[in-house]
Amino acid sequence: MEERKGRKKKVLLMGKSGSGKSSMRSIVFSNYVAKDTRRLGATIDVEHSHVRFLGNLTLNLWDCGGQDAFMENYLATQRDHIFRNVEVLIYVFDIESREFERDLITYSSCIEALRDNSSNARIFCLVHKMDLVQTELRERLFNERRDVLVSRSLGLAITCFQTSIWDETLYKAWAGIVYTLIPNLPQLETHLHRFASIADAEEVILFERTTFLVISHVTRSPIPNPFPDRFEKISNIVKQFKQSCSKMASNFTAFELRAAGFSAFIDVLTPNTYILVVMPAGAAESATTLMNIAVARKHFEKLERDSSVRGVEKLGRDSSVRGAEKDSGVRGSEKGGGGVGEKDGINGN
């Protein structure tokens, strides 16, 4: 069971009806843009989706409809079913809710159920729809809410984010959540550092391919960038553009910008990642950077493959796994060799 958990991570998405759970899920994992979410209906019971991440990590996302009747069920008859084996709980609060106190009571009940069934689960609270609050007031309101949430979490550690589907805060929160789940991160980061220095780049950012969430980044430029939130900004920018491409029934494969002061390249790195490389002004020809990326591609593909093979070996020892699932994990002729998972590991696109 332990090993199995290492591969599929159960993530609960909870909160009051209308707080924005399905909206966030659809934007981050299914290529919706913010305005498309107006058409979403209330979620009935639990909607499951499997999100493939970096080859060997699969998020098993439980989007739990938040209407009162469902919530009561989760906490009573379905209690074990819902709260057992949870790796991460994401609890969403609508900043405009008129009954915050009532939301808190439900929240505390969920935390209690989680503590009893999955004592090691990580807890994230999203204070959501912050776009509805005037900019100057956001920080203060968020801090207030966070203090209250901390005090109502039965002493468990929680991480809070302020979010809105209308700006990049959405990506900051979800990258933060997913980051804690990525296996073999240290190895990945070592490789990324090495690549950045070989390419002599100012900055390198690694993104997951379908969500465009930031996995890791290396900054070498000695001058501090005035945008500390640039990573999620770029996720947002590229995600928006992917959406425009999809209107033309396509996707972009490579991007190159040569501007005064810098050049930027975005390219597919591995079947599960994109890389952004920022080069200083007057750096080498584009072709050199593109070649460096091509060389790095081999290393990172191997890294991805290795970690995915390890996942499969673990699976192999787990008698409860069906053969079919094993097959989909690894393709190729050699034992354990070949490609990693599907390009688009996302259901419900």
Binding site: M248, F252, E256, L257, R258, G261, A281
Partner: peptide, 30 residues
């Protein structure tokens, strides 16, 4: 515009480079 804003800090205002016109290419899958 957005990417240029984020990395625009790398422009050295004293360099002549600052007046270089930006150019860009995006390749689509289709």
């Amino acid at each position: 515009v957005d990417v240029s804003e984020i990395y625009g800090y790398l422009v050295d205002p004293l360099q002549e480079e600052a007046t270089v016109e930006a150019s860009s290419i995006i390749r689509l899958q289709n």
